[in-house]
Design a protein around this nucleic acid. Structure first.
Lengths: 133, 133
DNA sequence: CTTGACCTTCCAGTGGCTGGAAGGCCTATA
DNA sequence: TATAGGCCTTCCAGCCACTGGAAGGTCAAG
């Protein structure tokens, strides 16, 4: 398969696939004309990466997960560790965003949103100290 | 004030403050020796930016919010619009992360995490189609 | 023989910093 | 007065994971 077909099949843009080759995540063959030639295993890998990325894993996590995937003598504990650490990072982010959301949504609710200049949002951002709203 | 004092007072790293000057968010004066000289209004602006950034506003949002902050004839609707759009983006992100979290936490729960190679996490990532778990 | 779709490489840009090198300035102490 | 150190300056490179675009090669159809 050429890169376009693999892009189609995997749902990843060609540019991204070239990038993944550049950083060594996949190693497609080359045809005589210089075109990348992808085998089924390459497509399979790309699907794997696409799914892992969709779950928010970093490229380096993907690399590690792929290595484990291909290592028949892996221990599932290694995989679980990576996944759980990632889960923790997700939880942190959600917590952060929820904090932001709470503050911001309160401010938005307080703002009249009319043609007058007075605005609790700006008042809050312009406050001198870090005291609560 | 020199940059170090302002960094201290605002909680922002000096590097970040220099960056904010570079992109035109603040415009400190210069002393004869070439050092940046910050007035109270500069510090105030930096505090404003720091708070807005902590709420997740982009730099361009910060720029717009600062402009509104300094515009006495603003309409609070303009501010509210920016804030609400940002709130929507936050909600989207939270939703995305929650989806990831749900999938991932299910997979983690299914994985024995022992010394055997069998692993539901890898099985899922390596699946051929996009069917649900 | 040309058109147009595909492919190639290479370079630059995104956002928002962050790190580091190389060098100037300022103050305190020996 | 020398020097040590802590501040400040600029400039350049790197982070992450792509994305866009230019310039050009290849291939199949009409």
């Amino acid at each position: 398969m050429n890169i376009g077909e693999v892009a189609q099949a995997s749902g990843l843009p060609s540019k991204t696939i070239r990038y993944y080759e550049e950083i060594g995540l996949v190693r497609p063959m080359r045809s005589e004309n210089g075109y990348r030639h992808f085998r089924d295993t390459d497509l399979h890998k790309l699907n794997f990466i696409g799914r892992a990325r969709a779950l928010g894993f970093s490229i380096e996590d993907c690399r590690a997960l792929l290595a484990l995937y291909e290592d028949e003598s892996r221990e599932s504990a290694s995989v679980k560790k990576i996944a759980r650490e990632h889960l923790d990072r997700i939880d942190e982010k959600i917590a952060q965003l929820s904090d932001m959301r709470a503050t911001l949504s309160h401010l938005v609710d307080c703002c009249a949103g009319d043609n007058r200049p007075d605005c609790p949002i700006l008042n809050d951002l312009g406050k001198l100290d870090g005291s609560p709203a």
